[in-house]
Write a protein that binds this DNA or RNA. Structure first.
Lengths: 198, 198
DNA sequence: CCGTGTGAAGCTGTTCACAGCT
DNA sequence: AGCTGTGAACAGCTTCACACGG
């Protein structure tokens, strides 16, 4: 699946890639509603985005629009699926088998669109061997490198635990700290202009 | 809890606030290890941060360091707790009672440090009235404005559902899309230099 | 002398505005 | 005529480098 790419992929910002996911959601909704063509301006108005930014983000990967007309909804959706690599199956390993990891390992959003959670690990010895609702069995986090080695095909690690995982050069590691979102809200509530006392 | 603030709080970036949360985690760990004083340089080396950025982020809120010495670990941790407003109790309303929302509503990270989930809502009529493990009962998302009105004290909404919630001017709304993280990983696996086939 | 606090420089990301294509 | 694709302007964020204070 080759793309006409105007600049090397390494120089494309994560912010752009994250927005492509957002655009994909928007197009899926539009397609569901039966829309066939949309301009960057309409898309921006509808979903509170910036039209120039949409065009610029897309332009890194090709010329998907028709001047004077706009974008074909279905075609653009397919392009985004291909750009994000969502047409391939993705085997993902979950680190953390607490409430959160367990829920995520059988969360529909994480087991659709080509993603499949193939292992769930934890550092707590008491959790080892426990079966989680999705059917997986909790394994030890100390075996991470070993498990990655054994299960040829594990290529990405998504870490929701606050601990800093030691990186493995051949596996893409992504840390997510959900508590940061709560603390950000707390900051705003503490410092922002007083909320009306509804 | 008044802070010496050099610039208005509205002009401080969310990126800075998110990093304050990260610094807080680092200091908690250092304190746990028995550290008493640390320089921005040591902190940066230890946790892969930038020392100038640490100093600049902190400087928005006051002069917490001692020139020629560094920062007192415990004092700085306390300052961060106060800046982020984590010394006050925070009542939070959860939107989405699927696997994810249910897990998060009794996730320890979300029910510690002053946070308390006080309600869980969903748009699916089949889930209404269901009790979730934390002891809450699922309510309808159409009653959001009503619930906020009734439960004087609800001040923040954290949305993990892909749907766009209609904003309520008096309540701080924060959207989080976890799937974006997976799609970002997928993008890298598709486009980055080939991973070695371990 | 050492590390903080901070203006200034450098860099990255966003928005503007229009040439060029349909 | 209208909208995309894009250089150029702008805005915001990060890093540098050093004056200042302990």
């Amino acid at each position: 699946m080759a793309f006409k790419r105007y600049i090397p992929v390494e120089s494309i910002s994560e912010l752009t890639i994250n927005r492509l996911s957002v655009y994909l959601r928007c197009l899926q909704q539009l397609e569901h509603e039966g829309g066939t063509t949309i301009s960057s301006q309409e898309l921006a108005d509808r979903f509170h985005l910036n039209s120039a930014q949409i065009r610029k983000d897309l332009a890194y990967f090709g010329e998907f629009g028709i001047r004077g007309v706009g974008y074909n909804v279905t075609q653009l959706r397919e392009h985004l699926v291909n750009i994000l690599g969502l047409h391939e199956e993705r085997r993902v390993l979950m680190v953390g088998a607490g409430n959160l990891g367990t829920a995520l390992s059988h969360y529909s959003g994480f087991n659709t669109g080509g993603f499949r959670i193939v292992a769930i690990l934890d550092s707590d010895p008491h959790k080892l061997g426990k079966r989680v609702p999705g059917g997986l069995t909790v394994e030890s986090v100390v075996d991470l490198a070993q498990i990655v080695k054994e299960r040829n095909g594990v290529q990405a690690v998504l870490n929701f635990a606050p601990a800093q995982l030691k990186g493995h050069p051949e596996v893409k590691l992504k840390n997510v700290d959900l508590k940061i979102n709560l603390e950000l809200l707390s900051f705003f509530l503490t410092h922002a202009a007083r909320m009306a006392s509804v």
